[in-house]
Design a protein around this nucleic acid. Structure first.
Length: 559
DNA sequence: AAAAGACGCAACCGCGTAGGA
DNA sequence: CTCCTACGCGGTTGCGTCTTT
């Protein structure tokens, strides 16, 4: 029965029920006979407490009838459950509780009641409010919803649970998921890419998943995709919507007419521009695999873990399939897999894992092309490298780029390694950031920006080689926040950032996600990039939006 | 000091479901 | 089997408080 009917009943009871004492009924009525709403008074609380003490919980509609409260049973139940229960804990959540909530949410999603069971003395409403507030705050600050260790833990849990789920992908090296789970979220886009594989031209499919993520607001996504890949879900928004209206700032295409990206990439290879293509060098392998051996489950890439989504779980967002993401982890493999929607996460995980690994490793084994590595990536890399060498002879660090890529690919990131290396924001965050931070030099077509990019990497490289020159690094950071550093967010307070101080800290420029995701290079290059590709119908009429992005980057970078 | 905006919490609303008549 | 009732859950809203300008 709906609350309306419930309320109707309440009103009926109050008004005309012959079983109700007339005097009592009149007391229950507020003016025209409707039940009272709004904040509870202490007197009402006392009445309710007294009633429950006498009669126990349950049969809440009877409370109104027998206690004289002009509140509907529903309201009484809520009041009791959320405020009057004697076993309720009062006060703010402890750090332990907060961490527990985060962990639970990573596992369960928005199952507040279930989470409340795990947190004695806390109500679902309390937890929900805490989570929503926290999520909003962190999202505003561009911080990840889930800390990396929670992601990792949940991933491990899911890995274990998924080991019991049958999947047909041949690769079963689950232990290798961790090192590359940074790429999980981009694979969110794989889902859509694959789904739209026949809808979009190959040139479109050349766009790597990460590129969608990296282009602010997922604006490249047509509605058809974007609606299911809400960017706030894909990665935390750097700024509250009130500051940056997504539709205004990032709206590139509405796709409402069903044209989708075809409207913006009509037979145009977006990456015919080498520089841009270089920035998306990973795309070749993505595409390659998209065309090749991604198992069907790859279209269902989402791991069940909410931590993987790292995100905004507000289901108020118009995410068609994302609402599924509210399901607890294990539900994904069971429920979603049966209906063609995202199914067993791990196969997907793994497929992309394998995909990424083969891509990256392939870069180090370019001399032995495999069926999975057709050499397309190497060609891009080589071309990129050649261009770099020819364009900036002075820049001996240009060779750092492939090395860096190799490093990132060859690192067997496990556990805290991942935590240290991965974008603390999330696997997504890292994946997005990794594409831009690690590959940004390719994007930086101009020698000026390229220099800056390589400089950034040089600093990183330097730090990796030795713990020395710390002061140099710090000086470098002071002048140029190195968003490409994987640990640039590690100082953030994952748990209990409820104070204003934390809020302020969260809003520090260092944690700005656009800066993190796009990097300074991209910021400085945004205009140029826009100019570079504005010849395409894709951005031509909206290239001005890149100014906004530049502005965002500058503003946030200076904060 | 005042106004505007942001924030967070309490409460409400709508929907789903279990159980009984 | 259908309808009714009660209850629970998750999302949303309203409003008081705090912060910023």
């Amino acid at each position: 029965m709906t609350s309306e009917s419930e309320d109707r009943i309440m009103s009926r009871d109050c008004i005309s029920s012959p079983t109700i004492d007339e005097a009592s009924t009149e007391r229950n009525m507020i003016g025209n006979g409707t039940l009272k709403k709004g904040p509870w008074t202490s007197a009402e609380d006392a009445v309710l407490v007294d009633y429950v003490n006498k009669h126990g919980e349950g049969n809440w509609n009877a409370v109104q009838k027998h206690s004289g409260l002009s509140r509907c049973g529903k309201s009484c139940r809520l009041r009791w459950a959320n405020h009057l229960r004697p076993d309720l804990k009062k006060g703010a959540f402890t750090p332990e509780e907060e961490r527990r909530i985060i962990e639970l949410h990573a596992k369960m999603g928005n199952k507040w009641a279930r989470m409340a069971v795990e947190l004695p003395g806390r109500t679902d409403n309390e937890i929900k409010n805490f989570w929503n507030t926290r999520t909003k705050r962190r999202q505003r600050a561009g911080l990840p919803i889930y800390p990396p260790d929670v992601c990792l833990q949940t991933l491990n849990d899911n890995t274990q649970s998924q080991n019991m789920v049958t999947f047909t992908n041949g690769d079963t090296s689950h232990a290798e998921i961790l090192p590359t789970n940074n790429f999980q979220i981009p694979a969110v886009e794989f889902k859509n890419l694959e789904l739209s594989h026949e809808l979009y031209p190959p040139s479109f499919l050349d766009i790597p998943a990460g590129s969608f993520l990296d282009i602010p607001g997922g604006s490249l996504l047509p509605q058809g995709l974007g609606s299911s890949c809400n960017n706030s879900f894909l990665f935390p928004m750097a700024h509250p919507p009130k500051r940056i209206r997504r539709s205004d700032t990032y709206h590139v295409c509405d796709g409402g007419d069903g044209g989708g990206l075809n409207d913006f990439f009509p037979n145009v290879n977006l990456f015919q521009d080498d520089k841009l293509a270089q920035s998306f060098e990973i795309s070749s392998s993505y595409n390659q695999n998209l065309n090749g051996d991604i198992p069907s489950s790859s279209s269902c890439f989402f791991s069940g873990s909410h931590a993987f989504l790292n995100g905004n779980t507000s289901s108020s967002e118009p995410i068609s399939w994302a609402t599924k993401l509210e399901l607890p982890s294990l539900q994904y493999s069971t429920q979603m897999g049966s209906c063609g929607a995202p199914s067993s996460p791990l196969p997907s995980l793994e497929s992309v894992d394998t995909l990424i690994q083969s891509t990256l490793i392939g870069q180090t084994k370019s001399d032995s092309p495999s069926p999975r590595n057709s050499g397309l990536l190497e060609a891009v890399l080589y071309e990129s490298h050649t261009m770099k060498m020819s364009k900036s002879n002075n820049n001996s660090n240009a060779s750092v780029v492939p090395r860096d890529i190799t490093d990132s690919s060859s690192q067997n990131l496990q556990g805290d390694e991942w935590e240290a290396y991965g974008d603390p924001m999330s696997p997504l965050g890292h994946s997005a950031a990794s594409v831009f931070s690690e590959y940004t030099p390719h994007l930086s077509g101009s020698s000026l920006d390229e220099h800056q990019s390589v400089e950034t990497i040089s600093v990183k490289h330097e730090a990796e080689e030795s713990g020395a020159k710390q002061s140099d690094r710090e000086d470098e950071k002071a002048n140029h926040v190195n968003y490409s550093r994987p640990d640039f967010l590690l100082g953030s307070n994952w748990f209990g950032s409820t104070s204003n101080a934390d809020r302020n800290k969260d809003q520090s420029g260092v944690s700005d996600p656009i800066g993190a995701l796009l990097g300074d290079d991209f910021c400085s290059d945004s205009k140029q990039t826009a100019a570079t590709i504005s010849g395409s119908p894709f951005l031509g009429h909206e290239s001005g939006k890149w100014d906004d992005i530049s502005e965002i980057c500058r503003a946030t970078g200076s904060r």
